[in-house]
Computed example of a mutant assay.
Amino acid sequence: MSKINGSRDTRNYGFGRKLHYSMKNCLRTHFGDGHYATVQAHSERCRLFCDWLLTTHQIADPRRINQEIFYAYAAHVRALLENGDISVSTATNRISSVNVVMKILRGDTNVHISKIGKVLGEKRCHIRTKAPQGLLFEQLDPLIEELINTNLHRVAAIIMLARTAGMRLREAILADLPRLKREALTLGEINIQDGCKGGRSGAFAPRWIPATDIVLSAIEFAISASPPGSRNLLSPTESYVEFLRGTVNAARNIVKGHGLQRFHDLRAAYACSRYQALTGIPAPVCVSDDESSILPRSCNREARQIVSRELGHERLEVTNAYLGKKS
């Protein structure tokens, strides 16, 4: 890993003079030009850690952070959790981000908390307990209409692609739209491979989605919203980060105003919709315990595996988080 200046023996391990800046700088160096959202998320969580270090221990140099101090911070986060000030997910993420940053700064894992759930006294539950927003397409119509009327056609296209094809935000933005339309018309399926998480490539990790009429309509709308000279939702002179910071961020208040807290919830809606199409019964998260139907285990598992592949996950338990408890 390259450094900006100095060595590991210099203040803030050579990543800058101010504590939080050095942590953000090491993240940028480690992840390079990409992973903007990841860098931003870790950075914001580490800002809280820095504030605690300065206030509680008067520490302004991460070289002074040892395992005892890290455990003290974990105890502070646990107190916030027990008081109901933060959720278990937030508490877990705060400690996880410090793990990441300290490993990058130090080059080792000597200051690290491996069993976060044990330290917090509560494990994060990954299983969804409420039906996702946007499960019914009609719920999204007012949102899409307002985005179009606000000249945010490209964000409306993201909403449609995410809901109809289970795309992540990055995948919807970077999708090769002409290729997807060609595949939909000639094959009846589309292969999601652009902008996939973890560097997946369609040539090596095919992810085929049934190209229903509504999927084709979403692709055609995205093509109409695509800037001239582009094959995706970015203009030829625009970077992914610029589009996120500008156009997407400008639309977030509108999106939340219609009850959709995150674009990612649309993937959960897609997962639930596909599960019902494959099994004939609603996903467990969409019904109460009294209303849920019991599928033969083999049928239930097969449906979940199909949904998992279509979402681009290797682990079945990740998809279970979208669908709810096992039926």
Rank of each mutant, 00 (worst) to 15 (best):
V119C: 06
C125G: 13
A75M: 14
E82V: 08
L147D: 01
H112T: 04
E68M: 12
A131I: 02
K130V: 14
E122G: 03
R94I: 04
V101F: 06
S89W: 08
M102P: 04
L143W: 05
S87K: 10
L53S: 12
A60C: 09
I116Y: 02
V155Q: 02
I65T: 12
A79V: 05
L54D: 13
I95H: 09
L152E: 04
N99G: 08
I116S: 01
D51Y: 11
P132L: 05
F137N: 08
E138H: 07
R106M: 09
I69E: 04
G121D: 04
E145R: 14
V88M: 03
R128K: 12
H126P: 00
A75K: 14
F137G: 05
T55G: 09
T92H: 14
R64V: 12
K115Y: 06
G107R: 09
H112E: 03
N110W: 06
L135P: 01
I69G: 04
T109G: 00
T150I: 00
R78G: 05
I95S: 10
V101I: 15
D61K: 14
L120H: 05
P142I: 07
V88Y: 04
V119Y: 06
I148P: 01
A91V: 05
I113G: 05
V101R: 03
I113P: 08
L135N: 00
R78V: 09
C125P: 02
T129N: 11
T92S: 15
M160G: 01
N151G: 00
R63G: 10
G117D: 03
C50L: 09
I69T: 14
E138W: 04
A156I: 01
A156R: 00
G84N: 10
S97N: 06
E122H: 10
L80N: 03
D51W: 10
L54Q: 15
V77M: 09
G107N: 06
R154V: 01
A131C: 05
K123N: 13
H153E: 06
L53F: 13
L105D: 02
T150F: 06
I127D: 00
H126T: 09
E68A: 15
V100H: 06
T92V: 03
G84F: 13
A91G: 11
L143P: 02
Q67H: 15
C125M: 11
R128T: 10
Y73D: 05
T129L: 12
L140I: 06
L54V: 15
E138I: 11
L80K: 13
H76Q: 13
V88D: 03
S89K: 10
C125I: 13
V98P: 01
L140C: 05
A79N: 13
T129F: 03
T55M: 14
N149V: 01
E138Y: 05
T129A: 11
N99Y: 10
V119S: 11
I69S: 07
P142N: 08
K123S: 11
E145Q: 13
R106P: 06
M160K: 14
K103A: 14
E68W: 09
S97F: 08
D141I: 15
K123T: 09
S96H: 11
R64C: 11
E82W: 08
P142E: 08
K118Y: 08
T56R: 15
I59S: 14
Q139N: 12
I104K: 12
R106C: 07
